[in-house]
Design a protein around this nucleic acid. Sequence first.
DNA 1: TTGATACTTAAGTGAATGCTTCAACATCAG
DNA 2: CTGATGTTGAAGCATTCACTTAAGTATCAA
Lengths: 114, 114
Amino acid sequence: MLQHQPLDLAFHALSDPTRRRMVERLTLGPASVSDLAEPLPMSMSAVVQHLKVLQDAGLVTSEKVGRVRTCRVDTHALSAAERWIAERRLAMEGRLDRLGAFLDATKPETEPRE
Amino acid sequence: MLQHQPLDLAFHALSDPTRRRMVERLTLGPASVSDLAEPLPMSMSAVVQHLKVLQDAGLVTSEKVGRVRTCRVDTHALSAAERWIAERRLAMEGRLDRLGAFLDATKPETEPRE
DNA sequence: TTGATACTTAAGTGAATGCTTCAACATCAG
DNA sequence: CTGATGTTGAAGCATTCACTTAAGTATCAA
């Protein structure tokens, strides 16, 4: 991926189970990099790389104080991803509603109400 | 990716702009492979490969009649992805609510109502 | 039957991904 | 200062990705 829209980055970041676990952990509250790494069966280095993906996607923010980096969920990118899906669902439902209305109007095999 | 959970496949499929365009097109109604390929700046072959990713993720179904394959959105995987995000958002909001309540209870710098 | 249409499949290529290890580096406690 | 802690960075490696081209296979129309 060399030139991405925000949604590319967000969905890509969420496509990895390790990164989803990290987000799940962070929804419970802020955590250090070590906290995030502790339950994960991989090196610190790998966790930091996953964290970078999450940050580049705008799903997570972090700030370093002393030697500890504290990470938090950033809801904006998460909401954007959710919104894209919801919009598609609404587009589909709208279409299905129109189809339903069409079928109702066209083929009233039982008497239509009113 | 060699051993994936459904969400891995769904988010991965959605992380590509071409595949999102295909889903967007399909939310407007069923389409053939050629219909899907027509606006896209790549070979049919590439489109078919994208379609396979969408189908493996459970986002799209298709059936072939004659020489035409007709594709449709399958809402189940889409809903699952949406649900994962919504759950994280709710988890966060719940946490923020509790934090808010805690702050209200702990530091009533203005008089609490009641 | 012949040709055009609508896909399908295989093989190949360069770039990106998900790790690893090893070597830094900057706090902070004692 | 000295060591332990918490993180950061670079390099390397096997795999997966997003395409391409080229060669199929059905199906339908004439």
